[in-house]
């Protein structure tokens, strides 16, 4: 056993997992607030990244571009809440889910209509040359992405657990009608959450766009978040992080050590097997909320 290589695969997997967590966060945010699995999350990531590079291509400085795109994404989030979700308050979750499917196709089309279908490079100022830590090569970009993710998760965890708004949000997620009956302003809560989801989509779009180029395929990164959500639970921010780390490390180790036995290319389905195994033990996911039904 080459332990140095093992460590390298493990570290690489953990860092990749952080990137998956970032995508999963977008889903968790919306789910916590509305109980909706937002199928349009990938489309929002594409929309954010495409908007950013298109504005930057006009010669606008980086931070100003970031600010303008943030405003656009928050406005988009608010518009989605106003036009798509608000009319559907108290509708069954499946109806809300179906609405987000339609929204995904609309956003993909809108992004290409507004900004064109071209592929763009995105440079966040990182050359991504690996650095050597005791013989283990670590990607500087992955470390940067992990740091960004840590800041984002820390802020969101504080927001959900320590603020009044965050607690209101959790109440809304539990039961729309009950939350409204005790005076929680559901519409405002949803608007804020969709605005924050727009911000998360922007950060995610920039990091993934920098890695893959800003192109339509960014919508596919959500595929990486699904096993993370199954494993970590749909309502837990820490769950998204821990789930991402387990999935990232698990899939890389499996590809390298089990792949050759199973004829390779197992990275796509192995995370789902891993997540399903966890579900056998904890059906609500590692950090999901346990629902107690009283008879």
């Amino acid at each position: 056993m080459d332990w140095l290589f093992f460590t390298e695969v493990l570290v690489g997997g953990l860092l990749a997992g952080v990137m998956y967590s970032l995508v999963a966060l977008g889903f968790v945010l919306i789910y916590k607030a509305s109980g909706v699995f937002n199928f349009a999350q990938g489309a929002m990531v594409l929309f954010a990244a495409l908007t950013f590079v298109s504005i930057q291509a006009m010669g606008v400085p980086f931070w100003l571009t970031f600010f303008i795109t943030l405003v656009i994404m928050v406005a988009l989030g608010l518009a989605i809440e106003r036009v798509v979700l608000r009319p559907m308050v108290n509708q069954p979750p499946i109806s809300l889910f179906m609405a987000t499917i339609g929204l995904a196709f609309f956003l993909e089309g809108l992004a290409q209509m507004l900004w064109g279908a071209d592929v763009h490079g995105l440079n966040l100022g990182f050359n991504d040359e690996p650095f050597d830590v005791g013989g283990v090569f670590i990607s500087s970009f992955d470390v940067f992405a992990a740091a960004i993710c840590a800041v984002l998760v820390g802020s969101l965890a504080l927001f959900f657990n320590k603020t009044r708004l965050g607690r209101a949000l959790r109440a809304v997620a539990d039961d729309h009608q009950a939350a409204m009956s005790v005076g929680i302003p559901l519409k405002q809560i949803w608007a804020i959450v969709w605005g924050v989801a727009g911000f998360v989509a922007l950060v995610c779009g920039l990091l993934w766009g920098s890695r893959l180029g800003v192109q339509f395929a960014l919508t596919l990164v959500v595929l990486k978040a699904l096993p993370v959500l199954i494993l970590g639970g749909f309502t837990s921010v820490p769950g998204a992080i821990i789930g991402g780390l387990i999935i990232g490390a698990g899939e890389k180790l499996a590809e390298v050590y089990l792949g050759p036995i199973l004829s390779g290319g197992i990275e796509n389905w192995f995370p789902y097997v891993l997540a399903l195994l966890f579900l056998l033990v904890r059906p609500e996911g590692l950090f999901g909320e346990k629902h107690i039904e009283r008879v």
Partner: peptide, 11 residues
């Protein structure tokens, strides 16, 4: 093999 679509190729 790189599993399609190939967004992740670390391993």
């Amino acid at each position: 093999e790189v599993p399609a679509p190939g967004t992740e190729q670390q391993s």
